[in-house]
């Protein structure tokens, strides 16, 4: 094996003087100028986030549809699965189940009931519908929420309140309009980012996940950021580069059998990992590790060296061989 490697390399080459420190300072200088100029000219792309407050103000009916789905278990997070809860909505792979619930999230309680309990201390009118909802059976709660979610298709906004045709919704319309008000106030984010044990607020999980579902997906679609739109490749601000180094995994996501798989993420990332393995193990893969030899691009890289080899007179001037 060693002999073979020897055969695949030239041996008759010289060492030439080199100022390595100058080389390093040179590349650092090039990069420094490059990034300073680019930063000065183009700044940094920032697309304002979608806040709960903005979403509540701009799309009140859709906002209530989203929060209602936290009550009937149809919301993306309500029925997600590990590591947030024991749902099955986003359960792709057995590994996911083994991990268990590491970051507990109960959408109904954490997103709706607890924030409303806090808001009720400021506005006691919230308490009666909240009590009515909590004292009803789970089946009744889901039935009310299902009815209300359906009715929201015909929902309109009147005097800042979402109104639907009359029906059997129990206290749900009152609760959802209170949730909407809380969202519009801007206080919802504070109600979601809570940990009474510490004063730091590093963990914003529930704030980020509150809008998971239609609000975030619709906002992302209009910016070409969804997975099916080669999203990670795109910056949120048109004209800027995104994470273009994710081209191969993003491409895999577009393959029809991957895109249509219920475990699209697990499949795409696993295939992407195989691609990386093929790259990482290139030196050990027979045949594949010979490809550059046959492609011949190396002839361009070492053009000058080969020229000197075949024209010995061209390379004279330094005879420090084989030492460094």
């Amino acid at each position: 094996m060693a002999t073979h490697a020897q055969e695949d390399m030239v041996k008759n080459y010289r060492y030439v003087p080199e100022d390595f420190m100058k080389h390093l300072m040179g590349t650092l200088g090039i990069v420094s100028v490059l990034v300073l100029v680019l930063a000065g000219l183009f700044g940094v792309p920032e697309q304002p986030p979608l806040t709960i407050q903005n979403n509540a103000i701009q799309n009140p009916v859709a906002f209530e549809a989203m929060t209602t789905r936290d009550l009937n278990g149809q919301g993306r997070m309500a029925n997600y699965g590990p590591p947030y809860n024991n749902g099955t909505g986003n359960l792709e792979f057995v590994f996911q189940k083994w991990v268990g619930v590491l970051h507990p999230l109960n959408a109904e309680n954490d997103f709706i009931i607890k924030p409303l309990r806090m808001a009720a201390t400021v506005n006691p009118a919230i308490t009666p519908p909240l009590n009515a909802f909590e004292s009803a059976s789970p089946a009744q709660q889901v039935a009310w929420a299902n009815n209300y979610e359906t009715a929201l298709a015909k929902g309109t906004v009147r005097n800042g309140v979402v109104v639907v045709p009359a029906g059997n919704y129990g206290p749900v319309p009152a609760l959802m309009n209170d949730t909407l008000k809380l969202g519009e106030s801007g206080l919802m984010s504070g109600a979601l980012i809570r940990n009474p044990s510490v004063v730091t607020r590093f963990n914003n999980q529930n704030y980020q996940l509150f809008l998971e579902g239609d609000p975030l997906h619709n906002a992302a679609a209009s910016l070409q950021l969804k997975g099916t739109q080669w999203g990670i490749q795109h910056s949120a601000v048109v004209g800027y580069p995104g994470a273009w180094w994710m081209t191969i995994p993003t491409w895999i996501y577009q393959w029809p059998f991957v895109a249509n798989s219920p475990a699209a993420d697990a499949v795409a990332l696993s295939i992407g990992f195989v691609f990386w393995l093929a790259l990482a193990l290139t030196p050990w893969i027979p045949g594949w590790n010979k490809v550059p030899r046959y492609l011949g691009v190396y002839k361009l890289v070492w053009k000058d060296f080969y020229y000197r080899q075949t024209h010995p007179a061209a390379g004279k001037g330094d005879d420090t061989r084989g030492v460094s």
Binding site: Q205, Q208, L209, L225
Partner: peptide
């Protein structure tokens, strides 16, 4: 920004699916 917000929420599914859910992308801390 929005790119952060969207990708934290979107990319969590991939990590969770592979059993790497201890890395909680929506947790900025």
């Amino acid at each position: 920004d929005f790119y952060s917000q969207w990708n934290a929420v979107q990319a969590k599914d991939g990590l969770n699916a592979l059993g790497l859910g201890w890395v909680n992308l929506p947790n900025a801390g």
